[in-house]
């Protein structure tokens, strides 16, 4: 007896809320664009000129752009829990759980809203990267598909963020956790170097690291155009999202208690 219509209504309203927020204040997005661009320009240029990393003939800045994009999108998402904590401290969440909408839809809606915020972030980074000379496949279908991958990836991480927020409940504890999650996953993925160059234990870890599949799918769509294994990436990303949403919805009640 799952209320599909009601859930869709709530999810789209949550996404609209986030779009309106972004429209009112974009400064945060601009500030957050600085770090990924530094990765691309400074790190990408230096490592590229060393030619220390075998990228299969792809220029190094091209190679890392998908990773930098996924890193920046998931960073936006992982801090979305702070919004939930603010809404918990104010009365917004109490009001939402007393409203006629499924709690699952509140969680998925908020996570997808964070996905939209992450998309705006990427729409700032991507044109600059192209101007800097990164060879992005400019086929609109590929680009749209890549943005969709970014969207559901960020949504999954935002779900994780909401789940962490319902357990930690406090702003102070939360702030540290964000970076502690993103950076290890970033470094233990194929974002900056091919998996084959990693030590065995990291190779094993990268295989269960959702970020690996997110980077891999984005790289296939934006840079290499080789879609032969993208179905594996998509299954992995969707499985991650479903599992995280289930977890976050299950524990969401705690956030208001």
């Amino acid at each position: 007896m799952f209320d599909v219509k009601g859930s869709m209504r709530v999810i789209t309203a949550m996404i609209e809320l986030e779009v309106r927020r972004v429209m009112h204040d974009r400064t945060e997005l601009y500030f957050r664009a600085v770090q990924p661009l530094l990765w691309l320009i400074v790190f990408g240029y230096i490592m590229g000129s060393l030619r220390a990393i075998p990228t299969g003939g792809i220029p190094y800045t091209d190679f890392i752009l998908p990773g930098v994009i996924i890193q920046s999108a998931t960073s936006v998402a992982i801090f979305f829990g702070l919004v939930i904590i603010w809404e918990r401290e104010s009365g917004v969440l109490k009001k939402l759980v007393a409203a006629p909408c499924p709690r699952f839809a509140i969680v998925v809606g908020r996570a997808m809203a964070a996905g939209v915020r992450a998309l705006f972030q990427v729409l700032i980074i991507l044109p600059i990267a192209v101007l800097l000379g990164v060879h992005v496949i400019l086929n609109p279908l590929y680009l749209l598909a890549a943005l969709a991958v970014v969207f559901i990836s960020a949504g999954g991480f935002a779900g994780m963020s909401i789940w962490i927020a319902s357990i930690l409940k406090s702003r102070e504890r939360f702030v540290g956790i964000g970076q502690v999650i993103i950076f290890p996953l970033f470094f233990a993925s194929n974002a900056l170097y091919p998996i084959a160059t990693m030590p065995a234990i990291l190779q094993w870890f990268s295989a269960i690291n959702p970020m690996t599949y997110m980077v891999s799918a984005t790289r296939a769509l934006m840079i290499t155009g080789d879609l032969s294994t993208i179905w594996i990436d998509m299954i992995a990303i969707l499985a991650f999202d479903v599992f995280i949403f289930w977890l976050a919805a299950r524990d969401f009640r705690q956030v208001i208690n």
Binding site: R20, R21, S90, K94, A99
Partner: peptide, 22 residues
């Protein structure tokens, strides 16, 4: 406690709630 979103307008608050309530 305060239960409206402060970083959008009053009208937008009502619009979003109207949509949530269907």
């Amino acid at each position: 406690e305060m239960s409206v979103w402060s970083d959008i307008t009053a009208y937008e608050n009502l619009l979003i709630y109207a949509k949530i309530y269907g």
